[in-house]
């Protein structure tokens, strides 16, 4: 019998059931504290950096494959790509010249209207390392983190449009939640009609839903949805999704609208992280309210202290 090495009779310690109860309680506590409070984010960060060598090892074959296929790419492919890129650069260059004059004109008009100036946000380049390893969520891991001043909440875009938002920052990597994730929503605007809505990730089949829109809403299949910019996270006018189906049923006052994201974690490896814009109207409003709250707390605290002192004096 290879199974019993110890001559002792009772080698098993506490019974299996006692252990189960103990560990189950422990994990329920952990789940509750992780879901409700943010005490564990530092623990998670340090533990993730412990795990990172294993993650690196696991990624290594893929990195090697990518490097090798980059190395052995044929000359014909390279030439075709150079040709495509230079023609693209020509088109973009012409468009850019127009953009500059338009931008100047727009700034001028905005100053006439006394509207707040739009700023161009600095960006950081990042590379997608791998997709998230949980079939329940739609996340990707990118290769820059706290070491490059990445902050949770930054918008992530690729060449085609919005990809998602940074949700967790680790020392050298960060986690980006994709638009299609169940927990992410993004304010959008229909490009054709200017109608505003909120797109929610469906969490299932790589699409986003536009719920709570009336059955007679002016949205057609093929409409492009762009960011509306009213949230202060995503700048205005980035491509988000293309409407793929609009269904109206007699039984529901709402239309069922499904759209497919334009950007895709499968398409591009390079992404841009847009820096948080702290100067938007919404953020200013929020910080004002917070300051007021803090002030009122401090003054309350002072009052309490005074009353305590008074009581003590009596």
């Amino acid at each position: 019998m290879e199974y019993q090495q110890s001559p002792k009779f009772f080698v098993r310690g506490p019974s299996a059931f006692a252990r189960l109860i103990m560990f189950a309680t422990l994990s329920l506590l952990l789940i509750a504290s992780d879901a409700r409070f943010s005490y564990l984010s530092e623990v998670r960060q340090s533990a993730v950096s412990l795990l990172s060598p294993f993650q690196w090892l696991a990624n290594y074959p893929v990195v090697l494959y990518n490097d090798l296929s980059d190395f052995f790419t044929s000359q014909a492919n390279l030439r075709a790509e150079v040709k495509r890129l230079s023609s693209q650069a020509l088109v973009h260059g012409a468009a850019l010249q127009q953009l500059k004059t338009l931008q100047a004109e727009n700034e001028h008009l905005r100053s006439l209207f006394d509207a707040s100036k739009t700023t161009i946000r600095p960006t950081k380049m990042a590379e997608i390392m791998h997709l998230g390893s949980d079939p329940f969520t739609h996340k990707v891991i990118v290769n820059i983190g706290a070491d490059k001043d990445v902050q949770a909440g930054q918008a992530v875009v690729d060449a085609a449009g919005v990809l998602g938002q940074v949700t967790r920052v680790y020392p050298h990597t960060s986690e980006v939640t994709l638009l299609t994730d169940h927990d992410l929503s993004i304010p959008v605007q229909v490009e054709r009609s200017g109608l505003r809505a909120i797109a929610f990730g469906s969490g299932r089949d790589y699409g986003v839903n536009l719920p709570y829109l009336p059955a007679n809403v002016d949205i057609k299949v093929g409409d492009r949805l762009v960011t509306s910019g009213i949230d202060g996270v995503y700048p205005k006018g980035l491509g988000v999704a293309k409407v793929t189906s609009v269904k109206v049923s007699a039984g529901s006052p709402f239309a069922t609208i499904v759209a497919l994201p334009i950007a895709g974690a499968q398409n591009f490896r390079q992404v841009l992280l847009l820096d948080l814009d702290h100067k938007t109207a919404v953020n200013e409003e929020v910080s004002k309210v917070r300051e007021e709250e803090q002030l009122s707390k401090i003054s309350k605290g002072n009052n309490n202290n005074k009353s305590v002192k008074k009581n003590a004096g009596h």
């Binding site: 994990s27 329920l28 789940i31 998670r44 998230g132 329940f136």
Partner: peptide, 8 residues
């Protein structure tokens, strides 16, 4: 930890 899901 590795998958980034809720602790536990």
């Amino acid at each position: 930890l590795a998958s980034g899901s809720l602790f536990g």
